[in-house]
Protein backbone atom coordinates (compact mmCIF):
# COMPACT_ATOMS: atom_id res chain seq x y z
CA UNK A 1 0.00 0.00 0.00
CA UNK A 2 2.48 2.62 1.22
CA UNK A 3 6.20 2.12 0.87
CA UNK A 4 8.74 4.59 2.23
CA UNK A 5 12.20 3.65 1.02
CA UNK A 6 15.47 5.30 2.19
CA UNK A 7 13.80 8.69 2.40
CA UNK A 8 15.90 11.63 3.50
CA UNK A 9 14.43 15.09 3.46
CA UNK A 10 13.48 18.30 5.23
CA UNK A 11 12.66 21.95 4.72
CA UNK A 12 16.16 23.10 3.90
CA UNK A 13 19.25 21.29 2.72
CA UNK A 14 19.78 20.11 6.27
CA UNK A 15 17.69 16.93 6.52
CA UNK A 16 15.15 16.46 9.30
CA UNK A 17 14.38 12.85 8.45
CA UNK A 18 17.17 10.46 7.55
CA UNK A 19 17.04 7.17 5.63
CA UNK A 20 13.48 6.45 6.62
CA UNK A 21 12.23 2.94 5.80
CA UNK A 22 8.82 1.56 6.56
CA UNK A 23 5.74 0.26 4.86
CA UNK A 24 2.05 -0.05 5.56
CA UNK A 25 0.00 -2.98 4.33
CA UNK A 26 -3.65 -3.13 3.38
CA UNK A 27 -6.05 -2.81 6.32
CA UNK A 28 -3.31 -1.85 8.76
CA UNK A 29 -3.54 0.93 11.33
CA UNK A 30 -0.04 2.17 12.02
CA UNK A 31 0.94 4.66 14.72
CA UNK A 32 3.79 7.07 14.13
CA UNK A 33 5.18 7.96 17.54
CA UNK A 34 7.90 10.39 18.48
CA UNK A 35 8.85 13.37 20.64
CA UNK A 36 8.26 16.94 19.49
CA UNK A 37 10.67 17.57 16.65
CA UNK A 38 11.29 13.87 15.99
CA UNK A 39 10.17 14.32 12.38
CA UNK A 40 6.60 13.01 12.44
CA UNK A 41 5.02 15.96 10.64
CA UNK A 42 7.94 16.17 8.23
CA UNK A 43 7.48 12.49 7.38
CA UNK A 44 3.80 13.11 6.76
CA UNK A 45 4.53 16.14 4.57
CA UNK A 46 6.78 13.98 2.42
CA UNK A 47 4.10 11.34 2.05
CA UNK A 48 1.39 13.83 1.06
CA UNK A 49 3.81 15.46 -1.36
CA UNK A 50 4.10 19.01 -0.02
CA UNK A 51 7.80 18.25 0.57
CA UNK A 52 9.84 16.24 -1.89
CA UNK A 53 12.47 13.77 -0.69
CA UNK A 54 16.11 14.71 -1.22
CA UNK A 55 16.86 11.00 -1.47
CA UNK A 56 14.79 7.84 -1.68
CA UNK A 57 11.25 7.28 -2.88
CA UNK A 58 7.70 6.99 -1.63
CA UNK A 59 5.25 4.69 -3.38
CA UNK A 60 1.55 4.69 -2.81
CA UNK A 61 -0.40 1.89 -4.50
CA UNK A 62 2.69 1.25 -6.57
CA UNK A 63 3.21 4.75 -7.99
CA UNK A 64 5.31 7.72 -6.93
CA UNK A 65 4.04 11.28 -7.02
CA UNK A 66 6.14 12.05 -10.07
CA UNK A 67 4.98 9.04 -12.02
CA UNK A 68 1.26 9.73 -11.75
CA UNK A 69 0.27 12.66 -9.62
CA UNK A 70 -3.51 12.20 -9.94
CA UNK A 71 -3.51 8.50 -9.02
CA UNK A 72 -1.10 9.19 -6.17
CA UNK A 73 -3.21 12.00 -4.76
CA UNK A 74 -6.52 10.20 -5.09
CA UNK A 75 -5.10 7.28 -3.09
CA UNK A 76 -5.02 9.12 0.23
CA UNK A 77 -6.82 11.68 2.29
CA UNK A 78 -5.12 13.79 4.90
CA UNK A 79 -6.22 15.34 8.16
CA UNK A 80 -3.68 17.96 9.28
CA UNK A 81 -2.83 18.72 12.89
CA UNK A 82 -4.28 22.22 12.66
CA UNK A 83 -7.53 22.41 10.73
CA UNK A 84 -7.13 24.11 7.34
CA UNK A 85 -10.52 25.36 6.18
CA UNK A 86 -11.74 27.90 3.65
CA UNK A 87 -13.10 30.92 5.48
CA UNK A 88 -15.37 31.59 2.54
CA UNK A 89 -17.04 28.19 2.35
CA UNK A 90 -19.80 26.77 4.56
CA UNK A 91 -19.60 23.28 6.02
CA UNK A 92 -21.89 21.99 3.26
CA UNK A 93 -19.69 23.57 0.61
CA UNK A 94 -16.55 22.01 2.11
CA UNK A 95 -18.16 18.62 1.67
CA UNK A 96 -19.32 19.43 -1.87
CA UNK A 97 -15.91 20.73 -2.89
CA UNK A 98 -14.20 17.59 -1.57
CA UNK A 99 -16.72 15.39 -3.38
CA UNK A 100 -16.12 17.21 -6.66
CA UNK A 101 -12.35 16.97 -6.34
CA UNK A 102 -12.43 13.22 -5.76
CA UNK A 103 -15.07 12.53 -8.40
CA UNK A 104 -17.86 11.54 -6.02
CA UNK A 105 -21.33 11.96 -7.54
CA UNK A 106 -24.08 13.93 -5.84
CA UNK A 107 -26.09 10.88 -4.81
CA UNK A 108 -23.11 9.25 -3.07
CA UNK A 109 -22.20 12.59 -1.51
CA UNK A 110 -25.63 12.90 0.03
CA UNK A 111 -25.60 9.38 1.34
CA UNK A 112 -22.10 9.51 2.84
CA UNK A 113 -22.30 13.03 4.20
CA UNK A 114 -25.65 12.30 5.88
CA UNK A 115 -24.05 9.49 7.88
CA UNK A 116 -20.95 11.50 8.75
CA UNK A 117 -22.91 14.56 9.84
CA UNK A 118 -24.97 12.40 12.13
CA UNK A 119 -21.94 10.59 13.55
CA UNK A 120 -20.18 13.88 14.34
CA UNK A 121 -23.39 15.68 15.35
CA UNK A 122 -22.96 18.51 12.88
CA UNK A 123 -26.25 18.23 10.94
CA UNK A 124 -27.51 21.59 12.18
CA UNK A 125 -24.38 23.45 11.16
CA UNK A 126 -24.43 22.77 7.43
CA UNK A 127 -24.70 26.43 6.47
CA UNK A 128 -22.21 27.77 9.00
CA UNK A 129 -18.92 29.37 8.09
CA UNK A 130 -15.68 28.24 9.79
CA UNK A 131 -15.35 31.51 11.70
CA UNK A 132 -18.28 30.33 13.85
CA UNK A 133 -16.73 26.95 14.59
CA UNK A 134 -14.67 26.00 17.66
CA UNK A 135 -11.30 24.32 17.16
CA UNK A 136 -12.92 20.91 17.74
CA UNK A 137 -15.68 21.57 15.22
CA UNK A 138 -13.14 22.65 12.62
CA UNK A 139 -11.30 19.40 13.26
CA UNK A 140 -14.57 17.54 12.72
CA UNK A 141 -15.07 19.26 9.35
CA UNK A 142 -11.61 18.06 8.29
CA UNK A 143 -12.36 14.54 9.48
CA UNK A 144 -15.70 14.45 7.66
CA UNK A 145 -14.09 15.65 4.41
CA UNK A 146 -11.41 12.97 4.73
CA UNK A 147 -13.89 10.17 5.40
CA UNK A 148 -16.27 11.37 2.69
CA UNK A 149 -13.63 10.22 0.25
CA UNK A 150 -12.95 6.53 0.52
CA UNK A 151 -9.27 6.33 -0.36
CA UNK A 152 -6.99 3.41 0.37
CA UNK A 153 -4.88 5.36 2.89
CA UNK A 154 -5.77 7.87 5.59
CA UNK A 155 -2.98 10.06 6.90
CA UNK A 156 -3.94 11.65 10.18
CA UNK A 157 -1.69 14.05 12.09
CA UNK A 158 -2.43 14.29 15.84
CA UNK A 159 -6.10 13.41 15.48
CA UNK A 160 -7.12 13.57 19.12
CA UNK A 161 -6.00 17.08 19.99
CA UNK A 162 -8.95 19.43 20.38
CA UNK A 163 -11.64 16.76 19.92
CA UNK A 164 -14.14 16.06 22.69
CA UNK A 165 -14.44 12.45 23.97
CA UNK A 166 -17.49 11.80 21.76
CA UNK A 167 -15.60 13.16 18.77
CA UNK A 168 -12.64 10.88 19.51
CA UNK A 169 -15.01 7.91 19.74
CA UNK A 170 -16.63 8.84 16.41
CA UNK A 171 -13.23 9.14 14.74
CA UNK A 172 -12.14 5.76 16.08
CA UNK A 173 -15.43 4.25 14.84
CA UNK A 174 -14.81 5.65 11.37
CA UNK A 175 -11.22 4.40 11.33
CA UNK A 176 -12.28 0.91 12.40
CA UNK A 177 -15.07 0.79 9.85
CA UNK A 178 -12.79 1.81 6.99
CA UNK A 179 -10.06 -0.52 8.20
CA UNK A 180 -12.48 -3.42 8.09
CA UNK A 181 -13.22 -2.47 4.49
CA UNK A 182 -9.51 -2.76 3.70
CA UNK A 183 -8.25 0.82 4.05
CA UNK A 184 -5.02 1.62 5.87
CA UNK A 185 -4.35 4.38 8.36
CA UNK A 186 -1.14 6.17 9.28
CA UNK A 187 -1.63 8.26 12.36
CA UNK A 188 0.84 10.32 14.30
CA UNK A 189 -0.02 10.90 17.94
CA UNK A 190 1.19 11.63 21.44
CA UNK A 191 -1.76 9.90 23.05
CA UNK A 192 0.10 6.65 23.61
CA UNK A 193 -2.63 4.77 25.46
CA UNK A 194 -5.04 5.17 22.53
CA UNK A 195 -2.29 4.27 20.06
CA UNK A 196 -1.48 1.12 22.05
CA UNK A 197 -5.10 0.08 22.11
CA UNK A 198 -5.92 0.67 18.45
CA UNK A 199 -2.76 0.42 16.35
CA UNK A 200 -1.74 -2.81 14.67
CA UNK A 201 1.81 -1.63 14.48
CA UNK A 202 3.89 1.18 15.95
CA UNK A 203 6.76 3.10 14.39
CA UNK A 204 9.08 4.85 16.84
CA UNK A 205 10.63 7.89 15.30
CA UNK A 206 13.59 9.52 17.05
CA UNK A 207 15.75 12.35 15.75
CA UNK A 208 14.56 11.75 12.22
CA UNK A 209 15.21 8.01 12.14
CA UNK A 210 13.08 4.91 12.69
CA UNK A 211 14.40 3.50 16.00
CA UNK A 212 12.03 0.57 16.28
CA UNK A 213 8.89 -0.73 14.65
CA UNK A 214 6.45 -3.61 14.95
CA UNK A 215 3.50 -4.85 16.95
CA UNK A 216 3.35 -4.29 20.69
CA UNK A 217 4.66 -7.84 21.16
CA UNK A 218 7.60 -7.19 18.81
CA UNK A 219 8.48 -4.03 20.67
CA UNK A 220 8.25 -5.65 24.11
CA UNK A 221 10.59 -8.38 22.93
CA UNK A 222 12.99 -5.94 21.33
CA UNK A 223 13.27 -3.93 24.54
CA UNK A 224 13.14 -7.04 26.67
CA UNK A 225 10.27 -5.62 28.69
CA UNK A 226 7.37 -8.09 28.89
CA UNK A 227 4.08 -6.53 30.05
CA UNK A 228 5.38 -3.03 29.33
CA UNK A 229 2.93 -0.38 28.12
CA UNK A 230 3.66 1.78 25.12
CA UNK A 231 4.50 4.62 27.52
CA UNK A 232 7.11 2.44 29.28
CA UNK A 233 8.62 1.35 25.97
CA UNK A 234 8.76 4.83 24.66
CA UNK A 235 10.46 6.22 27.75
CA UNK A 236 12.90 3.30 27.70
CA UNK A 237 13.77 4.07 24.11
CA UNK A 238 14.38 7.77 24.67
CA UNK A 239 16.55 6.98 27.71
CA UNK A 240 18.52 4.43 25.74
CA UNK A 241 19.19 7.03 23.10
CA UNK A 242 20.18 9.49 25.76
CA UNK A 243 22.73 7.13 27.30
CA UNK A 244 24.34 6.23 24.01
Amino acid sequence: MLEVKDVTGGYTRKPVIKDLNFSIGQGELVGLIGLNGAGKSTTIKHIIGTLLPQKGEIRLNGVTLNEDIETYRSSFSYIPETPVLYDELTLKEHLELTAMAYGIDQHTLKERSGKLLEEFRMEKRLNWFPSHFSKGMKQKVMIMCAFLVKPSLYIIDEPFVGLDPLGIQSLLNQMTERKNEGASVLMSTHVLSTAEKHCDRIIFLHEGRVRAQGTMEDLRKAFNMPNATLDDLYIAMTKEQHNE
Binding site: I48, G49, T50, I69, R73, L97, A101, Y102, C145
Partner: peptide, 13 residues
Amino acid sequence: SDFRMDMLFPIKE
Protein backbone atom coordinates in the same frame (compact mmCIF):
# COMPACT_ATOMS: atom_id res chain seq x y z
CA SER B 1 1.47 31.81 0.84
CA ASP B 2 -0.58 29.37 2.91
CA PHE B 3 -1.21 25.70 2.58
CA ARG B 4 -4.70 25.01 1.24
CA MET B 5 -6.37 21.61 1.03
CA ASP B 6 -6.99 21.96 -2.71
CA MET B 7 -3.22 21.74 -3.20
CA LEU B 8 -3.63 18.00 -2.46
CA PHE B 9 -6.67 17.42 -4.66
CA PRO B 10 -6.24 14.83 -7.42
CA ILE B 11 -7.02 17.33 -10.15
CA LYS B 12 -5.05 18.87 -13.02
CA GLU B 13 -2.42 21.40 -11.95
